Simulated assay, not measured.
Amino acid sequence: MSALAWDHTELGYAGPAPKRPHLVLVQGGARTTADAGGVRLTRRGRLALFLLVLAVVAVTSLTGLRGAGASEPLRAVTVAPGETLSQIAVAELPTLSMDQAIVAIQIANNLSTAQVSAGQQLVIPSS
């Protein structure tokens, strides 16, 4: 027996080489859930479902817009000479840890680093 050829006589088979199994296409196949008695959704049903989803999305978006106007206005602070972002974060956002407060201020002001300069205006997000 070689690595590239299979000798069926070495395994005790007599006669012609056995055929390799192969896939056979069977007409009809497995039954779908609709054929087996499942729920069938008509065109009118799909339209009703679509309109229901659309109504839910509209209501939730309008509710979200109404709630967005109720938030408190953003505060702004001016960086004093020698003041660091960590000092401002601890003083302005005492409910957050220092790391969380620094990140919140960086995100609110689109800062890529923790470097601030004297006279710079920083927006303080609500905590």
Rank of each mutant, 00 (worst) to 15 (best):
S86N: 03
S61I: 03
Q120G: 01
P21M: 10
Q115F: 11
Q120W: 01
H22G: 09
A48I: 11
G37W: 01
K19H: 14
V79L: 07
I124G: 10
M98T: 05
V79K: 09
L93N: 10
N109I: 00
V39F: 02
L62G: 14
Q120I: 04
V90K: 08
I102W: 02
G69E: 14
R40L: 01
L52N: 11
T42H: 07
E92W: 13
W6M: 02
R43D: 09
A76Y: 01
A108S: 11
L96S: 15
Q27N: 02
P73C: 08
L74K: 08
A70N: 08
S112E: 13
E10L: 10
P16I: 03
A70P: 12
R20Y: 06
L4S: 14
M98L: 04
G29M: 04
V56F: 01
S126Q: 10
A104V: 07
G29V: 04
T32H: 08
R66M: 12
G12V: 02
S61T: 06
L93A: 14
A80L: 07
V56N: 08
P16Q: 08
V77E: 08
E92Q: 15
T84M: 03
T63W: 07
I88Y: 11
A36M: 07
S117C: 04
T60G: 03
S126K: 08
G37H: 03
I88G: 13
L47T: 15
A55G: 14
A76T: 15
Q87S: 12
Q115L: 14
T113R: 12
T42G: 13
I102G: 00
L122Q: 11
E72M: 02
A5G: 02
L51K: 14
T113Y: 06
Y13E: 02
P94N: 12
I88N: 10
A108D: 09
A108I: 05
V39K: 07
V56G: 11
D7Q: 05
K19L: 09
G69D: 13
G37N: 08
V59N: 00
Q120L: 02
L49N: 01
G45M: 12
